[in-house]
């Protein structure tokens, strides 16, 4: 087995893959016994992995975090407006479509389909974008 394959294998092993990095399989262990470069790599990898596990700010919210946030909810966010707009959107679209259909009928316009499709597409795009973080 060559060094690149050994190192690729070492990268793929680890806790996230259900393996123990301290317990490489037989051919890998054999290679590591004889190849100082790969042994050094394996040690650096293990140190890096331990470092990544410990890499954490360990910061807790202070006692006033929730109340600060609550104040921002009251002033900063477009929640109420956004929510109302979202609720009214289907109704607005329906009204617009109805008005459009009435106008096309009365004026006997030839091809209203393209405009309706464009409106529906825009509406669908909007809804899908708003729904991106569905649970």
């Amino acid at each position: 087995m060559n060094c690149t394959r050994i190192r690729r294998g070492l990268m793929q092993s680890g806790p996230a893959n259900g393996d123990s990095p301290a317990d490489p399989d037989q051919p890998v262990a054999e290679h590591l016994r004889h190849c100082a470069a790969c042994r050094g790599f394996a040690e650096r990898l293990q140190t890096a992995r331990q470092g990544l596990r410990r890499h954490h700010a360990g910061i807790e919210p202070d006692a006033a975090f929730a109340s600060r946030l609550s104040r921002r909810l009251a002033t900063d966010t477009p929640t109420d407006l956004g929510r109302t707009a979202l609720r009214l959107l289907p109704l607005s679209v329906a009204v617009l479509l109805l008005l459009f259909l009435i106008s096309t009928q009365t004026r006997r316009l030839a091809e209203p389909a393209a405009t309706i499709t464009a409106t529906e597409d825009a509406y669908l795009t909007w809804v899908l974008a708003a729904d991106e973080e569905n649970s």
Partner: peptide, 26 residues
Amino acid sequence: FQQRADVEDTAQETFLRAWSRLDTYR
């Protein structure tokens, strides 16, 4: 993020986004 300001800003952003998108929580 390692600095308090970044962690707190991210937490605020998370909750503000949740608040503004509660309608999408199923």
